[in-house]
C-alpha cells in the first residue's frame, strides 16, 4: 500500500456517518482512539468509537457530564462505547465505510424500540415498495 497525504482526524474522521458492510447506517464516529505502541514513536489510530457513551464526553462541560450520568442511569450494564477496529474501515470520507457488520452494541436502542414499540404498531413491516 502506498503512503498517502496526511489528513485531519477532526475533519475527516470525527462526526462522519458510519455505513456498515451491508450498506446500512450504523451511527456516527463519535470519538477516535489512539494507541501508543511499545517502543516509542508516535501514536497510531486504533479504533473508532460510536454510541451515546462516546458522544457524551465530546459534548464536554456541564451538559456533557449530565449526559454521561443520564446514560449510566439508563443503561448501567453498558458503560463502554461500541468499538470498531480501524482495520475494519474501508474509507473514512465522505462517509466511514466498514468492511464488516456494525458492532451489536451500536444497535441496542434500535432493536429495543423495534421489538417493543414500533414493531407492535400495525403496518410496521410494510415499506413504500410494497411486498416487503
Amino acid at each position: 500500500m502506498e503512503e498517502q497525504t496526511p489528513f485531519r482526524i477532526g475533519f475527516v474522521v470525527l462526526d462522519r456517518q458510519i455505513i456498515d458492510g451491508d450498506g446500512r447506517p450504523a451511527g456516527k464516529v463519535d470519538d477516535v482512539e489512539l494507541t501508543w505502541e511499545e517502543g516509542g514513536g508516535p501514536p497510531v489510530m486504533s479504533a473508532l468509537l460510536t454510541d451515546s457513551a462516546a458522544l457524551g464526553p465530546r459534548i464536554s462541560g456541564r451538559a456533557g457530564r449530565l449526559w454521561r450520568s443520564a446514560m449510566r442511569r439508563l443503561r448501567p450494564s453498558v458503560s463502554e462505547p461500541a468499538r470498531i477496529a480501524v482495520e475494519d474501515v474501508a474509507a473514512f470520507s465522505p462517509s466511514t465505510r466498514l468492511t464488516t457488520a456494525a458492532p451489536e452494541q451500536a444497535n441496542l436502542a434500535e432493536a429495543w424500540l423495534r421489538d417493543h414499540v414500533i414493531g407492535r404498531i400495525p403496518g410496521a413491516r410494510r415499506g413504500d415498495d410494497a411486498g416487503e
Binding site: 500500500m1 502506498e2 503512503e3 496526511p6 489528513f7 485531519r8 482526524i9 477532526g10 514513536g41
Partner: peptide
C-alpha cells in the same frame, strides 16, 4: 489543540504526524 493530523503508512497503519 484543534485537530490531530495522521498519515497512512506503508504498513497500512494510521500514524499521528502532528497537531493543529
Amino acid at each position: 489543540v484543534q485537530d490531530v493530523v495522521v498519515r497512512r503508512t506503508r504498513e497500512g497503519r494510521y500514524e499521528v504526524v502532528g497537531l493543529v
